[in-house]
């Protein structure tokens, strides 16, 4: 493969990637399939992830989990805020101690594991790659 051919292939690939990202951009809020929660409103999602509600509609204590790889996109889609703002929000609440931020998990596999193990866990994944054992309660369009 000469250089010209490689460049062509790369550009074609990147063009394909760029076109594919918006198609799979939606973020799905997911829970354990057995959690008993069928559906959440966006408002419910905001209240839970931003620390307002500590309980799920089922009455169990909610355990929101932030997935590091998708965090920025998720908050942009949910409350239209960037991470700095979200961090500053939580920083204010450190002193009052009334609310605490979602648990931070770096790897998406770990998130997957946590949701599978904890009935009350609540997280988000790319809607294009939702594992079968997770239940989507809300899809956020980007």
């Amino acid at each position: 493969m000469n250089r010209v051919q490689r460049l062509l292939i790369a550009s074609t690939l990147s063009a394909t990637l760029v076109a594919a990202v918006p198609a799979s951009a939606d973020i799905a809020v997911v829970v354990n399939a057995n959690s008993g929660i069928d559906h959440l409103t966006r408002s419910d999602a905001v209240n839970i992830f931003m620390g307002r509600y500590r309980k799920l509609p089922t009455g169990n204590v909610a355990l929101p989990v932030d997935s590091a790889s998708l965090k920025a996109r998720f908050y942009r889609a949910l409350v239209n805020k960037d991470l700095a703002e979200i961090n500053s929000y939580w920083a204010r609440l450190v002193f009052s101690g009334e609310a605490s931020p979602p648990q931070q998990i770096a790897s998406s596999d770990d998130v997957h594991q946590l949701v599978l193990q904890n009935m009350n866990a609540l997280s988000y994944v790319d809607s294009a790659h939702v594992p079968d054992d997770m239940h989507v309660v809300l899809t956020l369009g980007e």
Binding site: R52, L93, E98
Partner: peptide, 17 residues
């Protein structure tokens, strides 16, 4: 902004602040 957060969370401490 602080009030928004306090109110959003129903945080009396923050509201009192």
């Amino acid at each position: 902004r602080t009030a928004q957060i306090g109110c959003f969370l129903g945080d009396r401490h923050l509201a009192q602040e």
